[in-house]
Amino acid sequence: MDQDFSVGVEETRTLKVPDSFTQIGTITKYEIMNYFRARRFFVLLALGIIISVLLTFLVGYYRPYSFLQSSLTFYTQWWGGSITFVIILSAIFFGGDSISSEFQNKTGYYLVSRPVRRSSIYIGKWIASFIASLVILFVFLGIAIGNGLYYFGADVPYQLWQSVLLSILYMASVLSFAFLWSSLFKTSVISVLITIITLLVVFPLFDSLLPALVGVEPWFSLTYGAEVITAVMALTYPVHEIHSSTPIGNGHFINLTSFTPYLWEGIVIMFLYFLVSAILGLFVFEKREFI
């Protein structure tokens, strides 16, 4: 009880709170520690590895022609076929409750009442989720390239690297989008559920139904924009709009339309989602009250 804190009195005035960049780094460091300690990083890493191992087994055992036709088709099927799903899983694991949990668990009281800007907390957490997701993405990429080397040697098509860059942009936008939901709700389950529903149900429904039923391009859908991740790996970039007619008898036809975003269009959609979600999410978190 009689410990002396008097040494602090003189130093009170000399102590200088670090700049916001340093504080962002601090938040990032502790958030990554959270991912490791709470095992969510390892759970997602295990999921990524399970998907990769399954693909390795299926391709090795069945030797599907669609995969083994060329190194380009191999990477298109392997990488293009699963990376968007892996990215969405990352957003759900790392972004879905990143902000809402601070309110639900009351841990925000410990952090927000310190001399640190709310924006630093938000950005630090976002960077942590981005780094963790990036590690998962590169592990997935490493296993894909490992398999590719086995079947096709060092012939890694340049389109894969284009697709990887687009995947990283998609990851940034999906994480920002998940953070936005996370800052809008104070309950983790709700923010995670809404992230899952929008990314895995609502957007994909728009992507398939709108063109097919009414011939409208779903330019406002994030997952539609992400189609460039696969499209860029095609031998020739797909046509933007395709109309097809299927006869159903009695001289009647079903007219179907499908769209593939232009490369620039996909990039703009993903970038705008990143930017708008980040600004809105930050704004909401700045205004949010710990009641």
Binding site: T12, T26, K106, T107, Y110, S113, R114, P115
Partner: peptide
């Protein structure tokens, strides 16, 4: 130059006491 304890905050459960206080020390420089 402030400290605050408002409404019994929860501390991140994955942290040790030392780490929880280190977080504060880091933020305060």
């Amino acid at each position: 130059n402030c400290s605050a304890l408002v409404e019994t905050p929860e501390i991140y459960p994955y942290m040790s006491t030392r780490e929880a206080l280190n977080l504060v020390a880091d933020l305060k420089g």
